[in-house]
Design a protein around this nucleic acid. Structure first.
Lengths: 359, 359
DNA sequence: TACGATTACGAAACCGGTTTCGTAAAGCCG
DNA sequence: CGGCTTTACGAAACCGGTTTCGTAATCGTA
């Protein structure tokens, strides 16, 4: 008699939630001892710690994050702010990326809170609100820029964060935590591949140099040229291209040069598709009269004829690692040691081949 | 003397967070009175309510959701579980959809928590965890199925939710809250459009009938036929098609019939692109020898030649309305009154035209 | 064996709110 | 004008945890 208390909601499933006090009662301990046992305090006897852990598992006890948060200020949630004003719409990779983050976060008992913004001001307002309401403990920042205002903003607030991509050209800030795919290496390899096929004039089409990845990929392209002993011709490099139509226009511009390239390296698949449009316009065969290699590995590249030779990025893995890095940092790891650079996987298609033999 | 207390973190930005007790002190009231004033309790004098609201605004007071949650159990967060095992990867619409949800949620002071699952079991486990940890107050369920296990699951737990799409064929459960785009009407209009152009044999290609939208679109197709006085031929209807390759195979099968169709209505753009591949294979011109109309309005449909005539869905708007509906429900509105059906917008392309004149 | 240092736990305050309950003061009515 | 309702607020408990602090019991050592 005493069992008959609050019929209140709580465990919506039917069986009532088990609270820390229930656990304590079942163990004949106080909730303070149980709490410290669960949080690995030093002043708990090993045997007691074991008993508590066992009973917790048996009773299915799980602390309510928000109740903990009242005291600790941590809610075990990662934050992601999507930029709706981005030139591309994150392409088809968003689902994989989110899948990677959430799967990894779930494994560790964390969750992901997503917000969005249409401008830098809105982004700062959103971040501020998420922090002020303590809805989030740290941030994942996709799509880094060479000079990224988010980095300064979050640093000033002392909020942990991890970058998808690096900042500041190729000389990354050692104090930052990031995950990146080596786009420079991919572009270098693309040029090497084309040079090996016999190409001498190789063009490059990339997006705005405000994005760090664009800068790195351009550097990789130039490094590839140098390595192949081909001198760099600025006329063959076109930047500020972000969509298929832009990619097509860039192809036209390059092909209309007095000495047109026989191959074009595109920094992104979406823009490379524009080359196919131009090839059709002009009766050129991709992979024969014009070779194309690009980067991203979008599904459509596999469907198109001939399939696009591309360096594929594993967005799912990126999400997983970014979540893992941020969680490590939130658990106290030094961000300076949390960096990962992976390579893109070459998916050979039919879009690259030897150059047409010069008459 | 007393001012010198916790230098603790809290207001990460620098200025300390203002708590309800600060507000109370500034007003010369107790925090209980302030709390009730802010929550519109009846036993607060109008003048007091006004003073409190004013001071709160002036001091920039905002309650911490998780502190409220300890007592109320509500965290002002919407939940969304992405299904990674879905046939398509949500296509290119996910960013818009998430943008819509989060923008609307932000306006109302709510946030979005995203999780993912690879199977039904995992989905139930994830939902259970989010509820148990009180990370979420209600769910948005995308991609409804005719018999949707999530509906029964959440209903049994008495958790508020809103559906993107309906369930149970065309006879929606009146107790459910949902937002849907009228795919049946779009398919009916597609058939009417083709019939008006002179087509007599019109095929239909749709995805698995397990998805409610597939069933509805098929019904719309058949309704369109009836309306146009064309008798339904089961041989012209192919289901279980979910990707471009499948769409291509369906087109081949239809064109290989003794009496092939002169037009095909596809339930989704992604599959309709397969018709273009087959047309190229066979030397048919889309919009001349073969007409195609489909549904979704994917960007690629605009790029392809000829542009795909399609009924476009506004994913952003869908996200906004779903968030609004769920928030309304969480604020106490009766789900029975929360349904919205909108129409898809026809985007005419060049993929439909009069049938080739019969010899 | 006596005494200081450790060990392991309990008691209670605390986090930032919400909600119940009690009660002075004001209002109403005959 | 006296008794009964309202009105409007304060006091205190509460939500589910965490953390500080105090203290018995055990240990080690001289």
């Amino acid at each position: 008699m005493e069992e008959i208390r609050d019929t209140v909601s709580q465990g919506r499933g039917g069986t009532r939630r088990v609270r820390i006090s229930d656990l304590a009662e079942a163990l004949g301990l106080t909730k303070s001892t149980v709490s410290r046992a669960l949080n690995n305090y030093a002043d708990i006897a090993p045997e007691t710690r074991r008993r508590v852990a066992e009973m917790a598992a048996q009773m299915g006890y799980a602390p309510m994050p928000y109740a903990q948060a009242v005291r600790t200020g941590r809610v075990r949630a990662l934050g992601l702010v999507l930029e709706l004003d981005a030139p591309d719409r994150y392409g088809p990779f968003l689902a994989d990326f989110l899948g990677g983050i959430t799967q990894e976060a779930t494994l560790e008992g964390w969750t992901l809170t997503v917000a969005s913004s249409n401008s830098r001001e809105e982004m700062e307002a959103t971040v501020t609100r998420l922090l002020q309401e303590h809805k989030v403990d740290g941030f994942i920042l996709p799509r880094t820029m060479v000079e990224d205002p988010r980095v300064d903003f979050l640093r000033a607030k002392h909020v942990p964060f991890v970058l998808f991509g690096r900042v500041g050209h190729g000389k990354p800030d050692p104090g930052l935590s990031w995950y990146d795919v080596d786009g420079a290496e991919a572009m270098r390899a693309a040029v090497a591949r084309l040079a090996a096929l016999g190409h001498k004039r190789i063009g490059f089409v990339g997006p705005s140099a405000a994005y760090n990845f664009a800068v790195l990929r351009r550097e990789g392209y130039q490094a590839g040229l140098a390595e192949a002993g081909i001198s760099f011709d600025p006329a063959l490099e076109i930047m500020e291209v972000s969509d298929r139509a832009g990619g097509a226009q860039a192809a036209r511009d390059l092909l209309d040069l007095p000495q047109p390239p026989t191959a074009i390296v595109y920094a992104t698949d979406a823009t490379a598709l524009g080359a196919y449009d131009v090839a059709r316009e002009r009766g050129l065969r991709i992979g024969r009269e014009l070779s194309v290699i690009s980067y991203d590995g979008i599904p459509e590249g596999r469907m198109i004829d001939p399939p696009l030779t591309s360096f594929a990025v594993d967005s799912r893995h990126a999400g997983e690692r970014l979540a893992a890095l941020l969680i490590a940092q939130l658990r106290g790891a030094d961000p300076a040691g949390l960096q990962e650079l992976v390579v893109a996987r070459l998916e050979p298609g039919g879009s690259d081949g030897p150059p047409p033999s010069v008459s």
